[in-house]
Design a protein around this nucleic acid. Structure first.
Lengths: 159, 159
DNA sequence: CTTCATGTCACCTACTATGTTACATGATCA
DNA sequence: TGATCATGTAACATAGTAGGTGACATGAAG
């Protein structure tokens, strides 16, 4: 999984967890993301520290949601993932001695901030409960009552 | 130079070029950015193709601005650099079969688009002429009539 | 015709995110 | 109590990629 799609991927996992009764193991989650269980644990650790999910060891263990979907926004999740920056571009130097570069930064920095704020704000407007509702609409629209289990073709077959 | 600071770095170079009479060689530009001349040529090539700068070979050759600063916006430069995306985050999959992922994408995609549009719009509002004016204000404010030549300490000394 | 500059290819290097292995810890169940 | 299953985590391996470097061709100016 590429770095930039952590938020997207994590939301994906959380919604799958919401559709399910018991805990989900790192292994099952890893298959959904086509990656390794250890990677899942690494990423989920951040969410657990923030109280969004819970993990349990031993038989019947795994990951469960620890908070109501209506009380989790996309922004919460993004923040818990602690990704460095929302923007792919930035200033070359933060405190340049060169006046030219100072002028460049002065033009760019406010725009960057404004844009980051907007995106965070948009993410803050959406709860996981809304996503879940949308998901159920889609399930109905598709007409089927299929379980979600088999929609993920496992692309990587490790011999 | 990190990938994300291409725009910032290029603006820096263009303003330095604007402050100067004749052409600037790739070597001089490279020193400003603390990098290699070949890297400069690679990056400048895009701008040349769009008609923003001109390059000349031979004695007295180098790079010159090919368009009035008032007719170059930061957006123009960004576009000419053809960086992949403005945002550091994105959807995990663009056309997912999984309904869960479709719901996630449906929530994220419009926000991403809106934010990208905002940033591009902000960049489009600023011309290099404005940056240059700001630079000259800063030069005056600093009181000195120093040339810009020596503000860049060359950090890398290749013995 | 020598020098200086770009144009470009090919390759090397460094960095970093991710994947993987290994082993410890703890919970559950027989 | 011991086997099993799960997470926790450290340590290492791998891969992908941006950037740096060297070499050489092209062309302009003196």
């Amino acid at each position: 999984m590429k770095r930039g799609s952590r938020l997207s991927g994590m939301l994906h996992l959380l919604l799958h967890m919401a559709e399910q009764d018991g805990p989900m193991t790192s292994e099952r989650l890893a298959k959904l993301m086509d990656t390794n269980p250890v990677v899942i644990r690494r990423i989920m650790a951040g969410l657990r520290d923030q109280g969004y999910v819970r993990s349990e060891k031993g038989h019947g263990g795994g990951w469960t949601l620890a908070r109501d979907l209506a009380r989790m926004t996309l922004r919460d999740i993004y923040t818990a993932l602690s990704c460095p920056s929302l923007l792919a571009i930035g200033n070359r130097t933060e405190s340049p001695g060169c006046l030219v570069e100072q002028a460049v930064n002065a033009a760019l920095t406010p725009a960057f901030h404004e844009v980051e704020e907007l995106l965070l704000s948009r993410l803050g407007d959406v709860t996981l409960a809304m996503l879940s509702a949308d998901l159920h609409d889609r399930l109905v629209a598709r007409g089927g009552h299929q379980k979600l289990e088999h929609v993920h073709a496992s692309r990587r077959t490790k011999h």
